[in-house]
Amino acid sequence: MTALTTRLPARFLPVLATVVLFVLTFGAGSIRYDGFASGQVIANLFIDNAFLIVLAAGMTFVILSGGIDLSVGSVVALSTMVTAAGLRAGWPVPLVIIAVLLIGSTLGLVMGVVIHKFDIQPFIVTLAGMFLARGLCFLISVESVSIKDTTFRDVATAVIELPGGVTITYNVVIALVVVLVALYVLHRTRFGRTVYAVGGNEQSALLMGLPTARTKVGVYVISGFCSALGGLLFSLYMLSGYGLHAVGMELDAIAAVVIGGTLLAGGLGYVLGSLAGVLVLGTIQTLISFQGTLSSWWTKIVIGALLLVFIAVQRGMIRGRRRQGAIAS
C-alpha cells in the first residue's frame, strides 16, 4: 500500500499542475483587477466555454486511445447549421436535437471504421472529416442562418440561479453532466479501461483479448457525439448556424486536453484535467479582456506558450520514467 500512496501523486502530477495553474492565473487576475474574483466571473468561465468542455471531454477519449480528431470544430459548425436550418424548416426541437446528435455520431462512426478497418492514420481521416463537415455546412447554406425558434431561444436565455446570486445557463449543467459521465465511463467501465489499454499498447490490448476494434471505433463515435452536443450548445450560445462557426476549435480542444495533462501518445490522462485545461484557456481570455489594452492575438501567443511548457514538462516526465524503467529491468 505504501507503493500506492507514493505513486499515485506522480500520475496525477500533470493534472495537479493544471489546477495549480488555473488557481494561479485566476488568483493573479483577482489581485490585479477588481471584480475579477467574483462567483459570476467563474460562472461565466463555464457559460462561455460549455461547448468547449464537451468537445474536450470527447477529445480526451480519442487522445487517450492514441488517436486524434481534427473534425470536431467542423462538426460543431455542421451541428449549428443543421440546427438552424432544421428549426427554420419548422422541425420540432426534439427532432432537431436527435438529428444533430445522430449526424455527429454517425460521422464519428464512419471515421472510426475507416481508421480501424483500413488502417489509415487518424490524422488524415479526421482531416477529411473536417473538410467534409465544413463543406456540408456550405451545401446547406453559404450564409449565416439565425435561429428564431422560441423554445430554443427560451432554453438559451434561461438561467439557473445559484446561491449567492450567481447565475448559470443550462449549457453549463449539460457540460458538467457530460464530464461526470465521461469520468464514470473512463474509470469505471470496461470500455473506459480498454481505451487506456489501447492507448498504452494497442498490440498488447489485442493479444489480451480486449475488444480493441470496438474501442477504437467507439472513441470516435463518442467524440462525434460530443462534437454534435457541443454544436447544440454552441447553437444555444450563438443562436445561429454558420459554416464559419468554430473555425479552429479543434485546436482549442486539443490544446485544452494537452494542457490538462493528457499524453498525446495516449494511455495517460484524465477528463478532469481536460476540464481544468478548458478553464485555464478561458481564464486567459478573460484576463486579456479585463486588461483591455492587450489585443486578442495575445491569447493565441499565450496558449502557444502554455502548450510549450506543458509539452516540455510531459517530455521530462516520460524521460524520467524511462530511465527508471531501464534501471529496473
Binding site: I254, V258, L264, S295, G304, A305
Partner: peptide, 27 residues
C-alpha cells in the same frame, strides 16, 4: 533537440504563430 512529438511540437507555433503575425501587423 527535445524529442517532442512533431505534431504537437509544431502545434505550438501553429497556434502562437498566427498571434505573432497579428502582432506584427497589429491586427
Amino acid at each position: 533537440g527535445l524529442g517532442i512529438q512533431p505534431i504537437i511540437a509544431t502545434l505550438v507555433l501553429m497556434t502562437a504563430g498566427r498571434g505573432i503575425a497579428m502582432l506584427v501587423t497589429e491586427g
